[in-house]
Design a protein around this nucleic acid. Structure first.
Length: 494
RNA sequence: GGCGCGUUCGUCUAGGGGUUAGGACACUGGUCUCUCACGCCGGCAACAGGGGUUCGAAUCCCCUACGCGCUACCA
């Protein structure tokens, strides 16, 4: 079979992580089956139109590295791929259904329907269109429409029987026809509803597998009825479990960031987002957790997709990002973080310009390498770097305490003199200077009579004014001669 | 209310008749260390409840509860 799947978002202006998960599973299935992955824009709700949404969506997918085989931006043989450009197609298909008596015009006004529903709800009945227009004579109905009376077109759902299908994720599912509403297919503004457009397009675009979120499960029988009314083959369906808020409601804003853009801006890597989202609802055969996109394509299996909703756990996302960072070589790590320090032009970015001017890029790089361990994102490392190069500020009280006795001052003086005696060029070898520094510290410690924790804490306090921070040998290499001696002098004076 | 779907550690999940119910995140104890992290080693922690079927049920069946989704001229 020639597998063809699609991702069909409505252009809301951002990419929802739930949408991303749906898109990813479609992508993985397509790539694995050597099928086609299609982008289709479902913009049939005029009131929701957002300027630039499609461009943004394409940019986000580009960033993620998920490519479409067909779509509004790349073309294809089944276009147009934007539903608002296919209005005539939907209208024509609706005519067909109308002519065959499988659909009918409904002249009920929105307020009438509203009243109907309110009444039904009040009498604790199931709100459902009462099908009054279904009985209208076809000729009269056509005339009213031609006279310009506003109407919608509804599907004439069978009054009895059942609709069943086998979902690739959930197995056999059965619905009673009498519980299905006469769905609106074509709105009075001439736009199709999702139900019509998605069926017509999926058929015309020869989509073989409809892989979408569970929220569509309940409307699937309507879609099947439509395929049958048109006399078309019904595609395979796979309804994916929902992504949930921590309170287990459908994932939405307010409880967390739900946009791919937000995670991108926060420093989550595209591969990490893909890897993480793949593990929400899908599980590999073994217990691996790290998967490249290629691995995912190889391992993915719809049969291993779970049925229950999954809470989007940001903590684990961050952890996964740090795992990716950890695996990066120093060279690659610096290459990746560099855009945070420098503009495209090569100019330092404002926040980092003074560091680069004062310390030079080699110290910036060494500092970056020294501070990368355990960081969650490149942004976080950049913050640490910024922090370490910044002025030390007021010493902490605990730190001052360490330095209160005469011994400490004596130690710092000896340390200062010892370090000052090291020629400037030796400070340029970051590894070696760290070792020299340790020797000097120990010697000074010996002379003063302190060692171990007492010694190092005093040195740290003298240098940074606090008791916590990066490894001292690294710190002095990052700072360099001038700053180290300066800080020691400051500490001695106080 | 109706219909549909679901339910294994707090979270993501493995396991689908016999397992000490496995892994990961988080949490936590220890270790390393001048400190904070990192790393390493360990720990806590789950089969929603009730009935069946069976020698034996987390696993199969039924019921209940709970959760979620849908119930628009939204998608």
């Amino acid at each position: 079979m020639n597998v063809r799947v699609r991702f069909a978002p409505s252009p809301t202006g951002f990419v929802h992580v739930g949408g991303l998960r749906t898109a990813l599973f479609n992508y993985l299935f397509a790539r694995q089956q050597q099928g086609k992955f299609i982008l289709r824009i479902e913009d049939t709700d005029q009131s929701r139109f957002v300027e630039g949404a499609v461009e943004n969506l394409i940019a986000v997918f580009d960033w993620l590295g998920l490519s479409f085989d067909e779509g509004p931006h790349v073309g294809g043989d089944f276009g147009p791929y934007v539903q608002s450009e296919r209005l005539e197609i939907y209208r024509r298909h609706c005519e067909r259904l109308l002519a065959a008596g499988q659909a009918y015009r409904c002249f009920c006004r929105p307020d009438e329907l509203e009243t109907m529903r309110a009444e039904q709800t009040k009498r604790s009945m199931v709100p459902m269109y009462d099908r009054r227009c279904r009985k209208l004579d076809a000729g009269i109905s056509r005339h009213r429409s031609e006279d310009g009376e506003s109407c919608v077109i509804r599907l004439a759902v069978p009054l009895t029987g059942t609709i069943s299908f086998s979902d690739l994720v959930r197995g056999d599912i059965l619905f009673r026809a009498d519980a299905i509403d006469d769905q609106v297919l074509l709105k009075s503004d001439g736009f199709p509803t999702y139900h019509l457009a998605n069926v017509v397009d999926d058929h015309l675009m020869q989509v073989t597998h409809v892989i979408r979120g569970e929220e569509w499960l309940s409307s699937t029988p309507k879609h099947i009825l439509l395929y049958q009314s048109f006399g078309w083959d019904v595609p395979a369906f796979a309804h994916l479990p929902l992504l949930l808020n921590p309170d287990r409601s459908k994932l939405s804003k307010r409880s967390a960031d739900v946009t791919v853009e937000a995670y991108r801006d926060e420093g989550i890597l595209p591969d990490v987002l893909l890897n993480f989202v793949a593990l929400l609802g899908w599980h590999p055969k073994d217990e691996r957790e790290i998967f490249s996109l290629m691995d995912l394509v190889k391992e993915f299996d719809l049969a291993r997709v779970g049925k229950a909703g999954a809470v989007f756990d940001i903590m684990k996302l961050r952890w996964l990002n740090s795992e990716y960072l950890k695996r990066e070589s120093d060279e690659k790590f610096y290459e990746n973080i560099r855009p945070i320090y420098f503009e495209y032009t090569g100019e330092p970015k404002p926040r980092f310009s003074s560091i680069i001017e004062q310390y030079g890029e080699s110290r910036l790089q060494f500092g970056t390498m020294s501070l990368r361990a355990g960081a969650g994102t490149y942004e976080e490392v950049a913050e640490r770097v910024l922090n370490i190069f910044s002025p030390v500020g007021k010493p902490e009280p605990e730190s001052l305490e360490r330095l209160s006795d005469d011994n400490a001052r004596d130690l710092l003086v000896r340390l200062h003199d010892g370090l000052a005696a090291i020629p400037a060029e030796e400070w340029e070898d970051f590894e070696a200077i760290g070792e020299r520094f340790k020797e000097v510290c120990k010697r000074a410690g010996n002379e003063v009579g302190v060692k171990g924790k007492e010694l190092w804490q005093a040195v740290r306090a003298g240098l940074t004014g606090r008791l916590h921070g990066p490894e001292l040998a690294k710190l002095i290499a990052i700072w360099g001669r001038e700053r180290v001696l300066h800080e020691l002098n400051q500490a001695i004076r106080h």
